[in-house]
Amino acid sequence: MAHSSSSSTIEYKNDKSVVCNFNRLANIVQAWTDDNPGRRFYSCKGRRVGNRYDSCNFFDWYDEEKPHGWQYVALLGARDVMRKHKEEIKILRNKVRELAIASERIGENLTDSKQTCEACKACEELEKEVLILNERSTVYRNVLIASSIGLTMVLGVFVGMMKW
């Protein structure tokens, strides 16, 4: 199985006041690797020293348990859907840019308003598709967050039952 690594830019509140090696409040970032989809960890963004940043490479898991079972599979599936949507959004934005440039050229070089109007309609349709894909991406992200919270609650109940 190929291991891909990425992390999201979603930031969570560091309620445990975990600090990095620079004694700065660590960021909580979400991993989207094959081994740890949706799992959160503490990381240091570094500190500014002159014109550059020094990194202390601080790392510590926020979520104690790795995702497993049906939630693991669901997180991987949702991650892949989000990646696909992001790629589609990127492609559509490039098409919108190309059409906008073409529309400007048509407007400058041609007086035929029919061709300009068709290019504008195509741009508007692509912009609508981009908005729809952005909305879907938001919905999938919310499902992932709710799923992670559900896993935490189930694990908490399970641990409580084991201690009882």
Rank of each mutant, 00 (worst) to 15 (best):
F41E: 02
R83K: 14
K90I: 08
S43P: 00
L99T: 02
S5M: 12
C123N: 04
K90E: 15
N94A: 14
I89G: 06
L126Y: 09
T138C: 12
L155D: 03
G38P: 04
W70M: 11
T152K: 14
S8E: 13
K66D: 00
S43G: 10
S55R: 10
T33C: 08
E129Q: 14
C120K: 03
V73Y: 03
N27R: 12
D112H: 10
E129Y: 04
A146R: 07
A122N: 02
L133R: 00
I149K: 00
G46H: 04
S8H: 09
L75N: 05
L131H: 12
Y62N: 01
A78F: 05
A102N: 14
Y12D: 07
A74D: 03
E88N: 15
G50P: 03
Y12R: 10
V81S: 07
Y72E: 00
L92N: 10
K128M: 02
P37T: 02
L76W: 03
F59W: 09
E124F: 13
S17T: 03
H3N: 12
N27L: 14
I89K: 04
H68M: 12
L75K: 01
F22T: 04
L126C: 08
R97M: 02
N23Q: 05
N36E: 06
C20I: 01
E118G: 00
Y62L: 04
E129K: 06
N109M: 10
G156S: 14
T138N: 14
V49I: 15
E104G: 14
L75V: 01
I106V: 07
E124M: 09
M161H: 12
C56I: 05
E104Y: 13
E64V: 12
A74L: 09
E88S: 15
A2F: 04
R93P: 03
R105Y: 05
C120N: 07
F41Q: 04
E127C: 09
E127N: 09
S7L: 13
T152M: 10
S8Y: 05
K95F: 12
S103M: 14
P37V: 03
G107T: 15
I106W: 07
A146H: 09
L75H: 06
T111G: 13
A2W: 04
L75Y: 06
K163G: 02
A31S: 14
R48F: 04
L133E: 00
G160F: 06
I28F: 11
E11P: 00
L75P: 05
L144Y: 02
R93S: 01
D34R: 10
G156Q: 13
L131D: 10
W32E: 12
D54K: 15
P67S: 01
L75M: 11
T138R: 08
M162F: 11
P67L: 06
M162H: 14
E88H: 13
G160D: 12
W61D: 02
V143I: 09
N134D: 14
G77N: 10
R93E: 15
S17V: 01
M153K: 06
C20Q: 03
M161T: 13
T138P: 01
A31W: 01
T111S: 10
W164F: 07
V49Y: 04
E108T: 15
E87T: 01
T111R: 10
G69F: 13
R24G: 05
G50E: 03
N36T: 09
K121L: 05
N134G: 13
E135A: 15
I149P: 00
M162N: 07
C123S: 13
N57K: 03
N57H: 06
